[in-house]
């Protein structure tokens, strides 16, 4: 084992060359690439986080808007229902009134018609009775008495109808 200083220095130089080559050709460029990649990954992750936050914000806004819209829709519906009910009530009332008026009108018309019919019938029946009676009794009974009897007879007939 002989230790020689020149050989030690030579080996130090050899190692120094390898050290320099490793630093400038291997370590620094590779580390730079790895750092850039790590930065890109970190940036992408940050961006994803940001997008996620934005998505959550939009989601919450959507939910809020939907809730508000639902609320408003319910309110409108309720208001519409109320208004429809009022209208319905009004219509019903109006219809009832119209109906009643119509019914009253119809009743009055009917009564009038009935009256007319009765009067007409009375007249026709009286004429018929007079005609028949005149045929039966001849000329013994005067016209005045006959009329009373005839009217009485007609009333009885009418009551029986």
């Amino acid at each position: 084992m002989d230790i020689q200083l020149p050989q030690i220095i030579f080996q130090l130089v050899n190692f120094g060359v390898v050290f320099g080559a490793i630093v400038y050709l291997l370590y620094k460029p590779t580390q730079k690439i790895l750092d850039e990649r790590a930065k890109r990954v970190a940036d992408t992750l940050k961006e994803v986080e940001k997008i996620e936050e934005e998505k959550e914000k939009i989601q919450s806004l959507k939910t809020k808007t939907k809730r508000e819209a639902d609320k408003e829709a319910a309110l409108i519906l309720e208001r519409a229902q109320k208004s429809a009910n009022v209208k319905k009530q009004e219509l019903v009332e109006k219809t009832k009134e119209t109906l009643q008026a119509e019914m009253k009108k119809a009743e009055a018309a009917w009564k009038e018609e009935k009256k007319q019919l009765v009067a007409e019938s009375k007249k026709q029946i009286a004429e018929a009775v007079v005609e028949v009676s005149s045929l039966v009794l001849g000329e013994k009974i005067n016209a005045k008495t006959d009329e009373k009897l005839i009217a009485k007879g007609i009333d009885q007939v009418l009551q029986n109808i």
Binding site: M1, I3, Q4, Q7, I8, Q11, F15
Partner: peptide, 8 residues
């Protein structure tokens, strides 16, 4: 070689 290991 001991010179190498000593240098290192």
């Amino acid at each position: 070689d001991i010179n190498t290991t000593l240098a290192l």
